[in-house]
C-alpha cells in the first residue's frame, strides 16, 4: 500500500511533457487542417482503431503469444550469450578459435538466416523463439566479452592470492565486475528481442496470434490509424518490460556496490 502511494506521489511528471506536447501539436495541426488528414490522421482515428482492436478480442491471445515468445527467446539468448561471452572473454583459446567467426557472423543480418531457420525449425513458434534468441544473443555476448576482458588483471591477481577456484573467480569476481557491460547488453537484448518478436511475426510466415498483427494489417492496408496504434501498443508493452528490467538492474547494481 505504502509502496503504491510512494510510487504515485513520486511519479515523475517530466517524462510526460514530451508525449503530451506532441499529442497537443498533433491534435492541433490535424484539427486546424494544416495537413492532409487522410495521410496524417487525427488522434481520434488511432483511438477508433484501438477501440476496434480491443473489442475484437484479439488482444489477450496476441499479448500472451508474443510475450511468451519474447521471454523464452530472451532468456535462452541471454544465457547462451553470457556463457559464450565469458568463455571467449576469459579463455584466450576460445577467443582465438571462435572469436573471428563470431565477429564475422554477428554482422550477418538475422533476416539472412530465416530460410535456414525455417528449414530446421519450420515456421512456427520454435523458429520464432530461435529468431528472438539469436537477436538477444549478440548484444549479451558482446557486452559480456567487453566486460570480462575489461576486468583488471590486478583484480584477478588478488583473487589468485586469495586462492579462488575457477568457479569462485567467475561468479565472485569476473561476472560481478563485468556486470555493468553485461547489463547494458541485456538491456539492449531486451529491446532487440522485443523488436525481433514483432519482426518474426512479420517475417516467419506461419500465421498465428501475436501483437504485431495490428501493425502488419495496418501496414498492408495502409491504415495509418491502425499502424500508429499498433506501434504504440508494441512500444508501450516493450516500455513496460524495460521498466521491470531497469528495476531489476538497479537491484543488481546496488548489490554489486555493496559487494565491491
Amino acid at each position: 500500500m505504502s509502496f503504491i502511494q510512494k510510487h504515485i506521489t513520486h511519479r515523475d511528471w517530466r517524462g510526460f511533457v514530451l508525449p503530451v506536447g506532441f499529442l497537443v501539436i498533433w491534435t492541433a495541426v490535424t484539427a486546424a487542417g494544416w495537413v492532409n488528414t487522410k495521410l496524417i490522421v487525427p488522434p481520434s482515428d488511432v483511438i477508433a482503431a484501438a477501440y476496434k482492436y480491443f473489442t475484437s478480442g484479439t488482444f489477450f491471445s496476441g499479448l500472451g503469444a508474443s510475450l511468451g515468445r519474447d521471454l523464452a527467446g530472451f532468456v535462452l539468448g541471454s544465457l547462451v550469450g553470457v556463457a559464450f561471452g565469458s568463455l571467449v572473454g576469459l579463455s584466450r583459446w576460445a577467443n582465438r578459435l571462435a572469436g573471428p567467426t563470431f565477429h564475422t557472423l554477428k554482422h550477418i543480418s538475422l533476416f539472412a538466416w530465416l530460410p535456414l531457420i525455417s528449414t530446421w525449425l519450420g515456421q512456427g513458434d520454435g523458429a520464432k523463439i530461435f529468431f528472438v534468441a539469436l537477436s538477444a544473443f549478440y548484444p549479451v555476448a558482446l557486452g559480456t566479452i567487453e566486460g570480462v576482458q575489461g576486468v583488471a588483471r590486478a583484480q584477478v591477481e588478488v583473487a589468485r592470492v586469495y586462492a579462488f577456484n575457477a568457479r569462485q573467480l567467475l561468479f565472485k569476481l569476473v561476472l560481478p565486475a563485468a556486470s555493468p557491460q553485461i547489463i547494458a547488453g541485456l538491456h539492449l537484448a531486451l529491446i532487440y528481442a522485443w523488436l525481433a518478436t514483432i519482426g518474426s511475426e512479420y517475417l516467419l510466415a506461419k500465421s498465428g496470434p501475436g501483437l504485431g498483427d495490428a501493425v502488419i494489417q495496418g501496414k498492408t492496408a495502409f491504415n495509418v490509424g491502425l499502424v500508429v496504434f499498433g506501434m504504440l501498443l508494441v512500444g508501450l508493452i516493450g516500455y513496460a518490460l524495460n521498466r521491470i528490467a531497469l528495476r531489476a538492474e538497479a537491484r543488481v547494481l546496488r548489490w554489486r556496490g555493496r559487494a565491491s
Binding site: L203, K206, S207
Partner: peptide, 18 residues
C-alpha cells in the same frame, strides 16, 4: 498453415516436406 509471407515461405515449406 497460413503464410503471411506468401509465395517464398510456401516454397520453402514445400521443399522441406512440411
Amino acid at each position: 498453415t497460413y503464410f503471411k509471407g506468401a509465395g517464398p515461405a510456401v516454397n520453402e515449406a514445400l521443399t522441406n516436406h512440411q
